[in-house]
Design a binder for these strands. Structure first.
Lengths: 228, 228
DNA sequence: TTTCATTATATGGTATGCCAGAAACCACCG
DNA sequence: CGGTGGTTTCTGGCATACCATATAATGAAA
């Protein structure tokens, strides 16, 4: 028998050109290596407008949002430039990250279920005894996932939102620094301790460990990464 | 003798209409009590355009930025509305505030001079033995200045920027809660301890005290403030 | 050849008009 | 009297044209 019911589909919600342009631009900027010497940092409204096939108006609104987010700088009648963060600014971002993720860790011990923390444990164990040498790329991903998971489990959407905004900037740096094996190995030890503190619901300790872990990254970047 | 030196004035930097509209709107929204029942939450592009005497274009760009900042919500073809934060969102903001200001407190113990910390001490002493009953308004201001000073002394501009963004939302709540005398009195005790920890450069303790101080506010709001 | 004033061009800022969708309104029909 | 379909109005989205200024190009004078 044929079903006479209408199979209602949600109407395809077409986003505004503004938000689509915003997403596209942000993705494009995040994808390129901003700190490469040959990077083209200049954007042109009219050229972009042609490439996207939209007028300048929605494009400008997208660019204005990116400017507020700190990804581009708009110089009146001079041009629009992708922002290269200074080393000092990167360090500040890592500091803020440390503050927020450590708070997230504390929240995890208060609101996450045992199962969720167990999942976190699995993320760490994946690379416990694996040979890092040949899987560095994967570890870099797993590392990012681990930190993202803590923030997600905290349940605090605002922390997620802010760190997500910082991520676009810090990403390039993280990739540079994680590749050093010794840091990766010590990083795994830290992660293990963090999860263990969470498992026994020791909020103070989890918070402190996450903070110290990220401040280590900060110190490392301060010492060894050259940007300006 | 007449000084022959040119008295160079900074060129009158006329901001773009967009940024002026942004400032004006933000100030207007912050000034009004969003959570009052009779509050008019609807904005109209064309009406605002007439009031400001500018066209809709720069106004729309300003509104788009305010939307990203979370102060307004733009519903396509339905209207622009000032956002009323839910209680859960306010609590998240206070949580983030606790994370950031506590980190700022730690930084203060590392980078601030003795003189600067002494100034902080003066901010607290102003209301040490004063009768709070008759100066509650002043105390509320001093309270805000104290927290702002910690963030400023940390030297971390990013923390200042983010907390400043949150301030517009939290302001209304703070004013509601600080007026209760018992909280104010205990608040002063907390502030005293915080400054003392800074004076002996005990970063861990200063950080913890600031965090606990702000989390007290969070717990208070969670228990006693009704929004939705 | 160099320098400096002038002009042309490029580029973001702004104003304006039209479009499409949503809500409000209204007339018509049962 | 109530509901239904059409029409009007309101409102934000978008495209386009023009403006003002910064920069580049040009050329004339030294």
């Amino acid at each position: 028998m044929v079903r006479a019911r209408l199979d209602i589909q949600p109407i395809e919600e077409v986003q505004s050109l503004k938000s689509r342009a915003y997403d596209a631009l942000k993705a494009a900027i995040s994808a390129m290596n901003i700190y490469d010497d040959g990077a083209k940092l200049r954007l042109d409204e009219r050229a972009l407008s042609l490439q996207f096939g939209v007028s300048r108006t929605p494009l400008r609104e997208a660019l204005a949002q990116l400017e507020q987010e700190g990804l581009v700088r708009i110089a009146p009648r001079r041009g629009i430039y992708i922002v290269r963060k200074t080393k000092a600014e990167i360090l500040e971002m890592i500091t803020v990250w440390a503050a927020l993720e450590s708070m997230a860790a504390r929240l995890v011990t208060q609101v996450a279920s045992d199962d969720e923390i167990a999942n976190l444990h699995r993320l760490v164990d994946t690379f416990d005894s694996a040979d890092l040498d040949s899987h560095m790329g994967e570890y870099s991903d797993a590392n990012i996932r681990f930190h993202a998971a803590i923030i997600a489990l905290s349940g605090c959407k605002l922390i997620a939102e802010i760190t997500n905004g910082l991520f676009a900037h810090v990403r390039a740096i993280r990739e540079r620094t994680i590749a050093e094996q010794d840091r990766a190995r010590r990083s795994i030890v830290d992660h293990k301790e963090i999860v263990e503190a969470m498992e026994v619901r020791n909020g103070e300790r989890a918070e402190r460990l996450v903070r110290e872990h990220t401040l280590k990254l900060r110190a490392h970047v301060e010492k060894y990464v050259q940007l300006d």
